[in-house]
């Protein structure tokens, strides 16, 4: 069932299948595309005028150590993007809960993810300390209403 493990999807719709174009191509001459791929060094804010036309933004993680994509995700969600936000590449199971908090709702990890470990990870923390992109209620809000 390796194929099933290749995508992790936390949305009601099904994964968007159209191949993503690079951010440069999208901005230069492929503005009709509905799927865009953002690399760690790309300026994600360049997509903000086009967000309502996009169905998929794929954020690339060439190395699990490179955390720029977490900021990319939050910036896109803060700008109002509602479409599929996919983390693709060197994505490890222990990172997925944090990525969910940053607004990712779809994952295409290069290596398969152990479903049982992931399930435990996602259920583990009862509440976060800080507000982020996932709507989880932070501790200070629980304390003070």
């Amino acid at each position: 069932m390796a194929e099933e493990a290749a995508y992790l999807h936390f949305r009601d719709d099904s994964p968007h299948e159209e191949p993503a174009v690079t951010l440069d191509s999208f901005l230069a001459d492929q503005s009709n595309a509905t799927a865009v791929r953002v690399e760690p060094g790309d300026e994600a804010r360049a997509l903000i005028p086009h967000l309502d036309r996009l169905a998929l933004i794929e954020v690339s993680f060439p190395s699990f150590r490179d955390g720029r994509g977490y900021s990319t995700a939050r910036i896109l969600r803060e700008a109002g993007y509602r479409g599929e936000l996919r983390a693709e590449g060197d994505v490890l199971v222990d990172q997925i809960p944090l990525m969910r908090r940053c607004g990712f709702d779809s994952f295409a990890p290069a290596a398969p993810i152990d479903a049982a470990v992931l399930q435990r990870s996602l259920a583990r923390y009862p509440q976060p300390y800080q507000k982020a992109a996932d709507g989880a209620v932070p501790v200070w809000k629980l304390r003070h209403g």
Binding site: G67, Q95, L98, Y125, P128, V139
Partner: peptide, 14 residues
Amino acid sequence: RQWSTFHPEFTYLP
């Protein structure tokens, strides 16, 4: 301390 604990965006800083 509380804000920075498991901050989802800042756990893989440079």
